[in-house]
């Protein structure tokens, strides 16, 4: 189990580094898809099957396809990445990112990490009811308002995307 986790963790980091370093954006995108698959697998190991499924379906399936679609639409004339120049700003940015990693890692691994009280859904309950049923129940009870709003947001995003991307005919 642990071994499988480390394999997937290593693969996902590898994919992420691919996003960062691959010259061709299409390659970057494909490498990101790999990362998302790995993360989906880790979600399964964390007993979050529903999240794993939508991770694969929505992220890897829909969103990344959209990215690839746009990339291919645009890079026919304008392929390849732009050459990186290592300016002072970029070096500073790299250092800052590392600093942030150190700090977050320090925060996560701290001995006195205060996590607050435990919730009411231990693993046994989740396995008994099923995580999808539980999420569905919560979505339609406690989070009904957020759920409705997110639906409106999606609608707005669809309309907005059409309006923005539409060619303007004179």
């Amino acid at each position: 189990m642990l071994i499988i986790f480390y394999i997937f963790a290593a693969l996902s980091v590898f994919g992420a580094l691919g996003v960062l370093f691959l010259r061709n954006p299409i390659h970057s995108a494909l490498s990101l898809v790999g990362t998302f698959f790995c993360l989906g697998a880790i979600y399964v190991m964390l007993n979050a099957e529903f999240v794993a499924v939508i991770q694969v379906l929505v992220y890897a399936g829909a969103i990344m396809v959209l990215f690839l679609f746009v990339l291919m639409l645009l890079s026919s004339k304008d392929s390849g990445d732009y050459v990186n120049k290592w300016t002072i700003g970029k070096i500073l940015a790299g250092l800052l990112s590392l600093g942030i990693f150190v700090q977050i890692a320090g925060l996560f691994t701290a001995e006195n990490l205060e996590l607050g009280p435990k919730g009411t859904y231990p693993l046994e309950v989740v396995e008994e009811v099923g995580s999808i049923a539980l999420i569905g129940r919560l979505l339609f009870t406690d989070y009904i308002l957020a759920f409705e709003i997110i639906a409106v947001l999606l609608l707005v995003a669809v309309i907005g995307a059409v309006v923005i991307a539409k060619r303007r005919f004179q």
């Binding site: 980091v13 992420a16 960062l20 942030i100 990693f101 977050i104 996560f108 691994t109």
Partner: peptide, 11 residues
């Protein structure tokens, strides 16, 4: 897992 998360975030 959290370290993995932090690493991905930094990348």
């Amino acid at each position: 897992i959290l370290l993995l998360s932090a690493l991905l975030f930094t990348i």
